[in-house]
Simulated scan of single mutants.
Amino acid sequence: MRTIDWRDDHIVAVDQTALPDAVRMLDIHTVAELTDAIRRLAIRGAPALGVAGALGAALAAREPADVCRRQVEALRQARPTAVNLAWGVDRAMRRLPEGPAAVLAEALGILDEDVRANRALAARGADWLLAHGAARLNVQTHCNAGGLACVEWGTALGVVRALHERGALGRVYVDETRPLLQGSRLTTWELARLGIEHTLVVDSAGPSVLARGLADAVLVGADRIAANGDVINKIGTYPLALAAARAGIPFVVAAPESTLDPDSPTGQDVEIEIRDGAEIVHMGQIRTAPAGTPTLNLAFDLTPADLVTAIVTEHRVIHPAKGERP
């Protein structure tokens, strides 16, 4: 099953807000529908957003020039922190002078490249972990960086899948990932379908999992990687990096080359999305804080390069903690 695809001149995508209760597909015919799906996280995950941006550009390319420009800019800004979204839009739109068919061809190329890239980085990540650890590993992950965050394979969970296929994976400890529970709703759903042993923990227990020696490595994805190796990922990643450093275990980021952003010198230069506070004063439809409670709903955090043991892409392994830069 592909998380996002092109079918009969429109986008089809898994509605990730419906999981784990139902597998529901979205049929998206307009850029406005796509932008809405991205903003409400029905489509999410850095590589999937790159593909969505490219396919959205193909939709926009059918429109008159002024409409196309407005739609493309709104789409680029739908999730400002995730660099892949704007990357996908811009790469596809460079073909616009050749006509809408060329934009679509570029977008479909990006879609197929995502599958190949993530399979390659998954194999490279598994190789690196096995070369730097035990023959059988327990890992801890945060948020969702599996097939749902890509087209059909995964980044961090792609590495997990590669370890599992080699018989080298023990157990995966999954952080729930507040406030929208991408870990408990999405990652556990994927792991169960793959037959991978896993245990769900609350976010605040994540560092204690490492302190107790239950995991041999932390494995996460990324939404943007700055030129100095700083990593921007789902809020709650930074505490895991601190805990991994304290426990003396690798903190590994798995992300395609498209997530590397040479135009952001450091993580401090990246805009961190702040989402609606309603997400943290409700659990589903249930209110968990008094009405009017002030909130700061940071969607992402910054993990400094010196805490990042390795960044694994489809082409290479970078070691920021040793001073290497992307």
Rank of each mutant, 00 (worst) to 15 (best):
M1P: 06
R2W: 14
T3A: 09
R7P: 03
R7A: 15
H10E: 07
V14W: 02
Q16L: 04
Q16W: 03
L19K: 11
I28E: 02
I28N: 05
A32D: 15
A32T: 15
A32H: 15
A42M: 10
R44N: 08
A54S: 11
A60S: 11
A61H: 03
R69K: 04
R79C: 15
G88Q: 04
P97I: 02
A101D: 15
E106Q: 10
L111R: 14
R119V: 14
A120W: 12
L121I: 05
R124L: 13
D127I: 08
H132D: 09
A134E: 14
C143K: 12
G146N: 02
G147K: 08
L148K: 04
C150H: 05
V151E: 01
W153R: 00
G154C: 11
T155R: 03
A156P: 12
L157A: 10
R161C: 07
H164K: 06
L181F: 12
Q182T: 03
R185N: 15
T187K: 01
L194F: 10
E197V: 14
E197C: 10
H198T: 08
D203G: 07
A205Q: 15
G206N: 02
A211P: 06
A215D: 04
D216H: 13
A217D: 02
V218F: 00
G221N: 05
G221C: 05
I225K: 07
A227V: 13
V231P: 11
G236M: 00
L240G: 09
L240W: 07
A245G: 14
P250E: 03
P250H: 04
P250M: 09
P262N: 13
I274P: 02
E279H: 07
V281K: 00
Q285G: 14
Q285N: 13
A291W: 10
P294I: 01
A299K: 09
P304V: 06
A305T: 13
T309V: 12
V317Q: 05
A321D: 00
R325S: 09
P326A: 02
